[in-house]
């Protein structure tokens, strides 16, 4: 319930578009594939920490843009071939929440 309230406060519109099965897959991608560089507990590795504290100042839309298009000149790849914009927003929101 607290999470829902937080989501509403963040004003992310696209949640209804992610079915529960896909949400579970996205959660798995975040833990395992993002975790390869950012750590399973998201405390960082080759990539920066992605804990809610580390992302406190980050905008959801900005994070989603990084997920989709990567960071040129770094090891962060663009995930656009594998994720939709709504899915990237879902991940960005998820990262900031927990």
């Amino acid at each position: 319930m607290r999470s829902l309230a937080a989501l509403l406060l963040l004003g992310v519109p696209a949640f209804a578009e992610i079915p529960p099965e896909r949400a579970a897959e996205l959660q798995h991608i975040v833990q395992q594939d993002c975790g390869s560089c950012h750590g399973l507990t998201r405390k960082g590795g080759l990539g920066r920490p992605l804990t809610p504290e580390a992302l406190a100042e980050a905008e959801v839309e900005g994070l989603a843009a990084i997920i989709l298009d990567g960071v040129p000149g770094t090891a962060m790849p663009p995930w656009r071939p594998l994720l939709t914009e709504a899915e990237a927003l879902w991940i960005a929101t998820h990262l900031k929440l927990e």
Binding site: D33, S36, C37, A75, P77, W79
Partner: peptide, 9 residues
Amino acid sequence: GEDMPVYKM
């Protein structure tokens, strides 16, 4: 050709 994204080192 273009290099592809590296999803795992």
